Amino acid sequence: MSMRIGYGFDSHAFKPGVPLVIGGLAIEHPEGLAGHSDGDVLLHAITDALLGAVSAGDIGTFFPPSDPRWKGAASHIFLQTALEEVATAGYKIVNVDTVLVMAQPKIVPIAGELRERVAELLGVKPGEVGIKAKTPEGLNQDHVAVAHATVLLESVKLADTPVQMVTTAEVDDDIDEVVKGLVGDSRDISALGRKRPAFDTDDLT
Rank of each mutant, 00 (worst) to 15 (best):
G60T: 10
G123R: 02
T81V: 13
A103W: 09
S11Q: 15
Y91H: 06
D58H: 13
V163Q: 15
H36M: 11
R115H: 03
I175M: 01
I77Q: 11
Q80C: 00
A159K: 11
G24W: 03
D160R: 12
G6V: 02
A26V: 08
V171W: 00
E85P: 02
S186L: 09
V21L: 10
P68S: 15
L25V: 09
Y7P: 00
F14R: 14
F63I: 00
D97L: 00
T88A: 15
T61I: 06
N95K: 11
S55I: 04
M1D: 14
A82H: 07
Q104E: 15
E120N: 11
G127T: 05
T167Y: 04
D172R: 07
L100A: 07
A82S: 07
R194F: 06
F62T: 00
A147S: 10
M3N: 09
L153A: 06
W70A: 08
K71D: 14
K157S: 14
I93P: 03
L25K: 08
G32T: 06
Q80T: 13
Q104T: 14
A111Y: 00
L139P: 02
P65F: 12
A169W: 04
L79H: 03
L50Y: 08
A89E: 02
T168M: 08
G32F: 07
L50M: 07
T168V: 05
K15A: 11
P30C: 04
H12L: 04
A56E: 07
D172W: 06
V156M: 12
G32V: 04
R69M: 10
V96E: 02
S190W: 08
D67I: 03
R196D: 14
V146S: 12
H29M: 05
V21H: 05
G138N: 05
G184S: 06
I93H: 01
V108F: 07
A49T: 04
A34I: 02
A103S: 14
G39I: 05
I27C: 09
M3S: 14
T81K: 15
D185N: 11
A26S: 13
T150M: 14
A169H: 00
